[in-house]
Every structure is written in C-alpha cells, then in structure tokens.
C-alpha cells in the first residue's frame, strides 16, 4: 500500500501541472459558457436560434470537409509514390513533405496571399497566357482558405497513410498480379482496403486539426469568411461576449470528442479488416 503511494507521488508534479494549466482552464471555459452574461443555457440556445452562429458552424464544417477530402486525395497519391519509391528516393520525398512543417504557418499564409491575390503570380500568369481575362477571386474567400489549409494539412495526411502503406506486404500485390489481376484491380481490391486504416487515421487527424484552425483562415479569409476559431476570437477579444465565445469553444471541444468516438469505432473496424495484424 505504502509502495503504491510512493509511485503515485512520482507522477504528482505532472498531474498537478496538467490539472492547473490544462483541465482547470477548460473547466472554467465550460463554466463561463453557462454563467455569462446570466446563469443558464442561454448561450447554447443561440445554436438553434441565431442564424449567424449556425452560419459559422456550417461554414466551418464545409471548409473542414472539403479540406480533409482534398488533403486525403493529394496525400494518398503522395504517400503511394513514397511507399513505392526506392529507399534513397523515399528519403528525399519525406524531406520534401516535412520541410513545409518547419516553416511558420504565418509565413506560409502570406506566401499564399502573394501568389493568389488579384495582382499575384497566378492571376497575372493566367491573364498573360490568355486563359482568363478577369483575375480569379482566389483569396479572401473560401477558396483561399481551403488552398492554405490543404497546403498545411497534406503532410499530416501523408504520414499516417504512408505508415499504413508500408505495412502492406508487397508480395500481396505480386500475388494478385500473378493470379491475373491488372494493376488497377490489384490496387482497388488489395492495396486500397489494406491501406484504409491509414486513410481513416489521416482523415480524423486532418479533420480535427482543421476544426480549430485560426491563423490560415484569418489571413486567407480576409475577415469575410469566418470559421469557428476566428469567430470565438471575435466574440471574446472584440465584442467582449465571453459567454458566447466560451459556448462555441465548448461546442468545438465536444465536436472533437465526438469525432474521436466515431474514430475509435472505426479503429475496431481495422481489426475486422485484418490490417496491421
């Protein structure tokens, strides 16, 4: 009994630190959401009554779903190429995937602005080539946000999928070919199902990450398209409506937890599929 207490004391500092800096503030946010401006569920009522609250949520979900879908598609292609590459080429590919992660998200957002704005390289280039006559609205709208977020998310999509693909025994593909399957058939019936756990993991990671995205949507959305994180900042710092901001923050946390619950169900699917066994 005494020995157990001793061991517990060892993790006490970490436990206290986490409680103080992590759990306590979250609890406080929860409290604010039901206490301000007056006690009750008034803030949560806004979820069903306020059109602007609903619009922010719908916009956020739409952007996150589009971002996740595009990031998964691009990431799957990249991960596939990397998984099949030679050891040497694989190292270079991985470096190319990881380098963007080391660059500040702020720098990247501004880089996209210079590329995508009306007088940016892309619009000027397309006009010069005669493809378009009027500049395309590529930034300060949802398109800009999605482009910036996809760029940020692709590495996070690649890594779990690559890990799953490298688990796939290459002999299984050879076996499928040997039994008469074309490349396409072998891919869709063998490789794709076996890499699915990685796709699900990457999808959940990217989606959860996207839900709380702040800097990229703030810079590339130009204040016109609001996502949840920026809306919360607006409520709390500019409009001083703490209760409403805290309510939305709570909803965000719950949405992430809900996604994880769904995910854990899918992880059981993974055992069903036999991947990673």
């Amino acid at each position: 009994m005494r020995r157990d207490t001793g061991w517990w004391l060892l993790i006490a500092p970490a436990f206290l630190l986490l409680t103080l800096v992590y759990i306590a503030p979250i609890a406080q946010v929860l409290a604010i959401s039901v206490m301000e401006p007056s006690p009750g569920l008034g803030n949560y009522e806004r979820l069903f009554t306020s059109e602007s609250v609903q619009r922010v949520i719908v916009t956020t979900l739409r952007i996150c779903i589009i971002t996740t879908a595009i990031a998964l598609l691009l990431g799957y292609g990249l991960a596939y190429v990397i998984a099949l590459a030679t050891e040497r080429a694989r190292r270079w590919w991985l470096l190319a995937v990881l380098v963007p992660l080391w660059i500040s998200v702020l720098v990247r957002a501004f880089a996209w602005v210079t590329l995508l704005r009306r007088q940016g390289v892309i619009n000027e280039g397309l006009i010069a080539a005669g493809v378009i006559t009027e500049p395309l609205a590529l930034v300060w709208n949802e398109t800009g946000i999605v482009i910036g977020m996809v760029h940020y998310m692709v590495p996070y999509a690649v890594l779990p999928m690559l890990a799953a693909m490298r688990e796939v025994d290459p002999r299984l593909l050879a076996a499928a070919r040997g039994m008469g399957a074309s490349r396409g058939f072998a891919f869709s019936r063998v490789f794709l199902p076996l890499s699915m756990p990685g796709v699900i993991a990457a999808g959940v990671l990217v989606f959860i990450f996207s839900l709380g995205f702040y800097i990229t949507p703030a810079l590339l959305g130009g204040g016109r398209t609001l996502m949840v994180a920026e809306w919360i900042k607006l409520q709390i710092l500019d409009l001083l409506r703490w209760g409403l901001g805290a309510m939305m923050a709570t909803v965000l946390v719950l949405a992430i937890l809900a996604t994880l619950v769904v995910f854990s169900r899918l992880v059981n699917l993974r055992r069903l599929f036999g991947g990673g066994a």
Binding site: D169, R171, L172, A174, A175, A176, R177, G178, M179, G180, A181, S182, V190, P193, L194, F273, G274, G275, A277
Partner: peptide, 20 residues
C-alpha cells in the same frame, strides 16, 4: 508476357494470403 497474362497459379513464400 506480363504475369497476369500467363495463366499460372503460384504459392508464394509466406503464402501472401490477403489478410482482409
């Protein structure tokens, strides 16, 4: 001929059974 056009059955080392 590519493997899928050759009409052979093969038992691979380690069997290469599809786990899914």
């Amino acid at each position: 001929l590519p493997p899928e056009k050759r009409d052979f059955g093969m038992v691979f080392q380690g069997y290469a059974l599809f786990p899914h």
